[in-house]
Amino acid sequence: MKRITILIADDEAEIADLVALHLEKEGYNYIKVSDGKEAIRIIQNQKIDLAILDIMMPELNGYEVTRQIREHYQMPIIFLSAKSSDLDKISGLVMGADDYMTKPFNPMELVARVNAQLRRAMQLNQAVNEYESSLEVGGLTIYPDQRKVILYDEAIELTPKEFDILVLLAGHSQKVFSAESIFQNVWGESYYEIGNNTVMVHIRTLRKKLGEDKNKNKNKFITTVWGVGYKFNG
Rank of each mutant, 00 (worst) to 15 (best):
N61R: 03
P107F: 13
P58Y: 09
R70T: 10
Y230V: 01
V199I: 15
E189H: 08
H172T: 14
N217E: 09
A127F: 12
R41A: 11
S181I: 01
F183K: 10
H172Q: 14
V199Q: 02
D11R: 05
Q117V: 05
T102K: 00
Q117C: 11
I194T: 15
K175V: 07
W187I: 04
N45P: 05
E136D: 12
K175A: 02
G36D: 05
N197W: 02
V137C: 11
D86I: 10
A13Q: 08
K89S: 10
L110I: 07
L124V: 14
Y152P: 00
S85E: 12
D164K: 13
L169S: 00
L60C: 07
N115S: 06
L110W: 09
G188I: 13
D49F: 08
K37N: 14
A121K: 13
N197R: 13
M108N: 12
E12T: 09
E193D: 10
Q74E: 11
D88C: 07
H22A: 06
I77G: 06
N115L: 10
V201P: 00
R207N: 04
V225G: 00
R207V: 00
I8H: 02
R113F: 07
L87E: 14
N61W: 05
V33R: 07
D213A: 01
N233R: 07
M1H: 05
L169I: 03
A51S: 15
D35T: 04
T141D: 01
L60Y: 11
P104N: 04
V137W: 08
G229F: 00
A13N: 10
M56Y: 00
E12A: 13
L18R: 09
V33N: 13
K2T: 12
R207W: 00
G27N: 03
T205V: 12
T224Q: 00
Y230L: 00
V137I: 10
S181A: 15
G227Q: 12
R67V: 05
R67A: 13
M200R: 12
L168C: 13
S190C: 02
R120I: 10
F105K: 04
E162I: 05
D54G: 09
E38D: 15
L151P: 02
M95V: 06
I69L: 09
G92E: 14
L23E: 01
L50Y: 08
E59W: 04
L93P: 15
A127L: 11
S34K: 09
K175I: 07
R67W: 02
F183V: 10
M101R: 02
T223D: 03
V176N: 01
V33L: 10
A20H: 04
D49Y: 10
D99L: 08
L151G: 03
A121H: 14
S81D: 04
D54M: 05
L23Q: 02
G171P: 14
R3L: 12
G227C: 05
T141C: 06
L210M: 13
E189L: 13
I150H: 01
S85I: 05
D213T: 07
V228Y: 04
Q174F: 13
D145W: 03
E59Y: 04
V228N: 06
